[in-house]
């Protein structure tokens, strides 16, 4: 557990309302350190005791629901999981997605790309059986909570609006691994075009951003191998 040396913690939070603000700013808050541990704790404190209009999403507060992905002190992660530091604490919204207000971004493009890879099982036959081997290979992939951190960290999603992004490809690979699935060829056709998996430049930003250690770029490589 983190124990702070000082009685207070400083946190700097990105604030922006595109409808009323000309430009974005950082608001600085000094808050009591007692009982605080994570970035989420601090954000909650600010909203509860400093400014009730601070906009951010939260739900499960245990790294399971994917609501609270943010950019904190230079890296992406879940606000509810990342510990505050003794020194600088800077929170920014996810990149590549339009800011609605403060830390709340419009996730629509992220969901749209996810849905585009047909993220659902269509059985090849009613009694198709999942093998234990495939099940174990997929084990890590169902940890994905679709928080959007990898999508924001990716350099390609910003440049190319048609690129599906790391999360969508990781999910796609989950279905490619499933030996019950009937859409294999369709799925591959969807992503082998010029804006598909080959656009990935293997910068591994997604791997670093992923709070659940899914390693999306490895999944992208696996898909590339299948297509090649």
């Amino acid at each position: 557990m983190v124990t702070f040396m000082k009685d207070t913690v400083n946190i700097s939070v990105f604030r922006f309302d595109p409808l009323s603000d000309k430009e974005a700013r950082f608001d600085n808050y000094t808050i009591p350190a007692r009982g605080l541990r994570t970035v989420m704790d601090a954000l909650m404190y600010v909203r509860d005791h400093k400014d009730g209009t601070l906009a951010f999403r939260s739900s499960c507060r245990q790294g399971r629901c994917g609501s609270c992905a943010v950019h904190f002190n230079g890296r992406y992660g879940l606000a509810c999981e990342m510990p505050l530091s003794e020194g600088k604490n800077q929170v920014r919204p996810l990149a590549q997605l339009p800011v609605i207000k403060d830390l709340v971004v419009d996730m629509e493009r992220f969901w749209e790309k996810y849905e585009a890879v047909k993220p659902y099982l269509v059985r090849s036959s009613n009694d198709a059986v999942l093998s234990l081997r495939k099940r174990l290979e997929m084990d890590k992939l169902f940890d994905c909570i679709l928080c959007g951190a990898c999508f924001s960290a990716c350099l390609m999603t910003g440049k190319n609006p048609d690129f599906h992004g790391p999360a969508a490809y990781a999910i796609l690979n989950r279905f490619l691994l499933d030996d019950r699935d009937a859409l294999r060829e369709q799925r591959l056709a969807l992503v082998k075009g010029e804006n598909g998996v080959f656009r990935c430049h293997q910068m591994f930003n997604c791997n670093e951003a992923c709070p659940k250690k899914i390693y999306p770029s490895e999944n992208i490589l696996e898909i590339i191998k299948i297509i090649d």
Binding site: R57, C60, R64, C65, G66, L146
Partner: peptide, 11 residues
């Protein structure tokens, strides 16, 4: 009031 996958059921 939240995206479906942010529901308590995922926990």
């Amino acid at each position: 009031k939240v995206h479906p996958l942010r529901s308590q059921s995922v926990v």
